[in-house]
């Protein structure tokens, strides 16, 4: 029987007067790859910010491994085992690759294991070994994305969240990133994948959610989703901005 890892219930979040989430619910079970889809402004990033403690939800619960984390700080949420690969990579451009990795292991650091962890990451991302002492800012977009994922994995997360990992990458690099996601999943990692590229995400996901202007429109398996919805409307963003802005 699968164990539920993350449970979100009736989550409301807002930026000042603008409400971005109108009570969404979502589950991620252990070992699953869950895709969260939606167009620009649908509230995907807001959901992630609320999970990771960057944004305090107005109302609702976020339970991770049987513990309420809705009002915890980002650092304590990471300690509990949720690691985020932020949108747009967000690596530290002035720090070297090695320093970025070291920070990724900030909470989990263990002198003996650290070297092994690094070697493991170099196995997954050989390019990082070559670039180890270069500043992150000098890496290409694809390399930065790899660094961001490797950095997140250094903390030994129980749940890995990826925010738009394919954004701004060439098709070949997108393939590479998705291959990697599949490999991580095969190794037993629980993953919440947020994507605009619905088609690609659905090919690898176990289950999917579709978010539209702050409301959860659909949840189910990729097959069910394909039957129920025209993918194009998700991908290109149907019904944008109707009740989003209520000033």
């Amino acid at each position: 029987m699968t164990h539920t890892m993350l449970t979100i219930r009736d989550l409301h979040a807002s930026y000042g007067a603008i409400t971005a989430l109108h009570g969404i619910s979502l589950d991620v079970n252990e070992g699953e790859l869950v895709a969260l889809l939606g167009s620009n402004g649908a509230g995907k990033s807001t959901t992630l910010k609320s999970i990771c403690g960057v944004l305090r939800p107005v109302y609702g619960s976020v339970v991770f491994l049987d513990e309420q984390i809705a009002n915890k700080t980002p650092e304590s949420i990471l300690k509990r085992g949720i690691s985020l690969v932020p949108e747009g990579r967000d690596i530290f451009t002035s720090l070297t690759v090695a320093e970025n990795m070291r920070l990724g292991a900030f909470v989990s650091y263990n002198r003996k294991r650290y070297q092994e962890d690094l070697e493991e990451m170099f196995g997954l991302f050989p390019i990082l070994k070559e670039r180890l002492h270069q500043p992150g800012g000098l890496l290409s977009g694809g390399e930065q994305q790899q660094l961001a994922i490797a950095r997140a994995l250094m903390s030994h997360p129980k749940l890995l969240i990826l925010d738009e990992p394919s954004l701004g990458l060439s098709p070949a690099l997108v393939d590479q990133i998705f291959e990697l996601i599949v490999r991580l999943r095969e190794r037993g990692m629980t993953i919440l994948l947020v994507e605009q590229n619905a088609e690609r995400a659905l090919r690898v996901a176990d289950r999917a959610y579709v978010l539209n202007t702050g409301v959860m429109e659909f949840s189910g398996t990729p097959e069910e989703l394909e039957n129920e919805l025209d993918i194009a409307s998700v991908y290109f963003g149907g019904g944008e901005g109707n009740k989003e802005v209520t000033l």
Partner: peptide
């Protein structure tokens, strides 16, 4: 030192640094 690296990181991107588990 890790602390030094964390401080440089925080000056670069504060929120992301917290997401690494570094207490603000």
């Amino acid at each position: 030192t890790v602390l030094g690296i964390a401080m440089r990181a925080a000056a670069d991107k504060f929120t992301t640094t917290r997401l690494m588990g570094v207490p603000a």
